[in-house]
Design a protein around this nucleic acid. Structure first.
Length: 782
RNA sequence: GCGUUCAUAGCUCAGAUGGAUAGAGCAACAGCCUUCUAAGCUGUGGGUCGCAGGUUCGAAUCCUGCUGGACGCACCA
């Protein structure tokens, strides 16, 4: 299915095609060679220029790029810079070209009387068709002018307004959708918080940018897969497990662990770091514990049960916390660790470690089924605790994501890939793509080689990422994969992408490998790092790290304060309490009987969330943002609440007008019913702009802006940049608010008001679509 | 030192294949709630687009150099 697109623009495309194909004629206009004009004068019904635009070997999308918007509405509604046409064979001074083209448009199109199709029907089918192009152009455009090097076109404003509004009412929340991604799959890897740490604002940007991109790609017809790649692996878990076991007898408060496990673990982690400064033995133990963890996982035949996110184990944890948790704290580990360190010099020690590690892995290859059957019972303390921390964290993350309208199709983790990563390292060594360097394994490239295995044989972030990409390609055959990760990891991703490029160059070496590894060369070119700048100066007012929830709560409190001091809001709220039929509450989220306090609370939360999310999406990704509490907590100007407020205002206005004029427009069914189908059916008769020129210039400006929504979406998708939509929505809201303030609708003639309600609904549809794409909550009332 | 990236109004930012007069919002100042929600609207002031060259008919945008900031540069993720 094709998007209907903007008929004004597509007609202009056809005319530009006509212009290009008649290049020679146009260049000769006014010269001796200009015989056409004379002939045209003699016989107005004949066409003396080439109208067979099918001869043109350029597709419409390319032509569309030649069409721009003038910087000022007084210059025209669309324009074509004449210097752009030089790439299509036009020569000479752009100003002269522009003037000649405008002459051409007047003499051959605008001033030419309409042909009867029959006159030329015998001549050629194509010409008949193209006469329609000319007729359409005259219908949709009223004039053209040359100003400097530009050819400016003016639309028939009345038709334009009617057309766009009808289009929006017909398509509703599908307006602006396109099919760029039809049949394609895109994976979006975002958020990626670390297990056992509170969800900090550090991960907020990735989360909101990723979620928005997912919605945008979906809007563009892609199949999107949202993946949360949890930081659930690496030495840090060795540290955490070490701390959990070591400090359990010291300042260990199990009640705290039970009540808020994530914050508790975070404290533990901080404590580990302060202790390890004076006690490096702790770091050694942590590394070993991580190694044991990785071995436990690699030793498993089927790791999928580890990633089953259902809550069963957690119920068990809640009930048996004392017995279970303690039983897995392994005191003997300290002895083991100390002995290991004593056994010989460092190099020998490392080799011993690596040998043990290999043995453990090879056991798995021997397919020792009996051993695997009992693996569950022999679960190591490290594995148990890791699993527990992981599940607790996911439970907590899901709670937070729910608040900010974020969801995932899959929760993955680095741990899932470690087994494959280990095999992969071996293959890369075998194929001589990788080599050993100072006991570690590297892939040489440029100035900084990529390190894919540590000298003790354990995997690294990079090797796990290679493996993960393989796993995902096997599963989804994605066309594109976006990693929404901060720009500080640019080197990591350029190495990752480089590795896949190298694998592609060495494709032939993979022919003998398992099918799985033969995917590797396919992946090159499909991966993209969607980087974003840091948030600078982010700290609480007291100077500590900020957790997302505290951040949202602060915004919510501010909104609550504002609501409670807002006389209008409070009087409406109390009126709603008194009257069951109140228009105020009838279409709101909460029933009349519900507690007004809870209702207010809900609004405040959504305003706070809107402010927080929008703040991260309003500027372009790549720039570092200076964090400033006053800016974030401001609800005025270019903010999320301003947009939410605009929607609420539209709702309120429509409701009042609806009631006042008894229109019976069922706005609450806007997206679900056949609403407006009658209007759309006789759109030609319907006129959304006449009656008066009271407000028409601004109405036209608004509608013109609404018509740009489609292009805005494409722009946002092609640059992976949600802020394009943010900027667009701010302009939309500003136009609406200006209209709202300057043109009062109450007390005007009824059909005029009716038409303007259709305009308001169109604005509402665009704002709501846009806010949805950004995951900013939409409020019916504020 | 090498690499990536950024520098536009007092502040936060738009300005995306080079193109018409560089735009918004905050803040400042002056107005607007006996008619639709003032989380709003109207107006004023405010810019040598970091600096210096270069390419071009034309540069905030592209190239080079410089200055200043951020980030990264092998066993962390």
């Amino acid at each position: 299915m094709e998007s209907s697109g903007n008929i004004f623009k597509s007609n202009l495309v056809l005319i530009v095609e006509l212009i290009i194909i008649n290049k020679e004629l146009i260049e000769n206009l006014g010269s001796d060679k200009d015989e056409n004009a004379a002939k045209a004068q003699e016989n107005k019904n004949s066409i003396y220029f080439n109208t067979n635009i099918d001869l043109l070997n350029i597709n419409a999308a390319e032509i569309e790029k030649l069409i721009k918007l003038p910087p000022d509405a007084s210059y025209g509604d669309y324009c074509v810079p004449a210097y752009y046409l030089k790439q299509n064979g036009f020569k000479g001074d752009p100003e002269v070209i522009a003037n000649k083209i405008v002459d051409f448009i007047y003499s051959y199109i605008i001033n030419m009387p309409d042909n009867n199709a029959d006159d030329n029907a015998a001549e050629s089918h194509k010409i008949t068709n193209n006469n329609d192009i000319l007729k359409n152009f005259k219908q949709y455009f009223v004039s053209a002018s040359a100003k400097g090097a530009y050819i400016n076109f003016y639309v028939n404003k009345q038709k334009f307004v009617n057309y766009i509004i009808t289009e929006i009412l017909a398509e509703k929340n599908n307006y602006g959708k396109n099919y760029l991604g039809k049949g394609k799959t895109v994976i979006i890897d975002f958020s990626s918080p670390n297990i056992a740490k509170p969800f900090g604002v550090g991960h907020l940007r990735s989360t909101v940018i990723g979620m928005s991109l997912a919605r945008i790609y979906d809007f563009c017809g892609y199949k999107t897969v949202k993946i949360n790649y949890l930081g659930d692996f690496g030495t840090q878990f060795g540290k955490l497990i070490t701390a959990f076991c070591r400090f359990k007898n010291a300042n260990f408060d199990l009640t705290e662990f039970k009540n808020d496990p994530i914050k508790f673990l975070y404290k533990l982690y901080v404590k580990f770091h302060s202790e390890s400064e004076n006690n490096p033995e702790l770091d050694d133990e942590a590394r070993l514990r991580f190694k044991k963890l990785e071995q436990s996982i690699i030793g498993m035949d089927d790791i999928s049960e580890l990633f089953d996110d259902t809550a069963d184990d957690l119920d068990n944890y809640d009930n048996n916390i004392d017995g279970n948790v303690y039983s897995f704290c392994d005191d003997n580990f300290r002895k083991y660790s100390a002995e290991a360190r004593k056994s010989g010099d460092a190099k020998e020690y490392k080799e011993k470690e690596y040998k043990e590690y290999k043995e453990c892995r090879d056991k798995d290859k021997d397919e020792d089924r009996d051993r695997d059957k009992t693996a569950g019972q022999e679960i190591s303390g490290e594995l148990y605790l890791w699993k527990l921390f992981r599940k607790l964290s996911i439970r907590e993350f899901k709670r937070i994501y729910n608040i900010i309208n974020v969801s995932f199709d899959f929760y993955e983790g680095e741990s899932q890939a470690s087994k494959i990563a280990v095999n992969l390292v071996d293959i890369l060594l075998e194929t001589k793509i990788a080599e050993r360097s100072m006991d570690a394994v590297i892939i040489p490239m440029g100035k900084t080689p990529a390190l894919i295995a540590k000298s003790d044989g354990t995997t690294l972030y990079l090797s796990r990422d290679i493996a993960t990409a393989l796993l995902r390609f096997k599963k989804f055959k994605f066309d594109k994969m976006l990693y929404v990760v901060g720009s500080e990891q640019s080197l990591h991703f350029s190495q990752l992408f480089n590795i896949f490029k190298i694998l592609k160059e060495n494709e032939i070496k993979f022919e003998k490998q398992d099918l799985f590894f033969r995917y590797a060369p396919e992946i090159s070119g499909r991966l993209h790092h969607i980087k974003f700048g840091r948030i600078i100066g982010m700290s609480t007012r007291k100077g500590n790290l900020v957790f997302l929830e505290d951040y949202i709560n602060e915004a919510k409190e501010k909104a609550l304060l504002k609501l409670k001091t807002d006389k209008q809001y409070m009087s409406n709220l109390s009126a709603a309490d008194k009257s069951e039929n109140s228009t105020f509450i009838a279409s709101s989220d909460v029933s009349v009987s519900a507690d007004a306090g809870a209702y207010t609370d809900d609004i405040a939360l959504k305003v706070g969330v809107g402010a927080v999310i929008f703040n991260d999406l309003k500027t372009r990704r790549n720039v570092d943002v200076n964090f400033n509490w006053d800016n974030v907590l401001s609800f005025e100007g270019q903010t999320g609440p301003y947009l939410q407020y605009s929607v609420a205002r539209i709702n309120s206005l429509i409701e009042k007008l609806n009631h006042e004029y008894s229109f019976k427009i069922k706005i609450e069914n806007l997206y679900t019913s056949e609403t407006f189908s009658n209007i759309i059916a006789d759109a030609d008769k319907k006129d959304f702009c006449s009656i008066s020129d009271y407000d028409f210039e601004l109405v036209f400006q608004i509608v013109k802006h609404l018509s740009l929504f489609e292009d805005t979406i494409k722009d946002a998708a092609s640059h992976d940049e949600p802020s394009v939509i943010s900027t667009y929505l701010l302009d939309t809201a500003a136009l609406f608010n200006s209209y709202y303030q300057n043109y009062k609708l109450m007390n005007l003639k009824s059909d005029f008001v009716y038409n303007r309600i259709m305009l308001l609904i169109s604005v509402k549809i665009i704002l709501e679509s846009g806010l949805t794409l950004l995951s900013v909550p939409i409020l019916k009332k504020m």
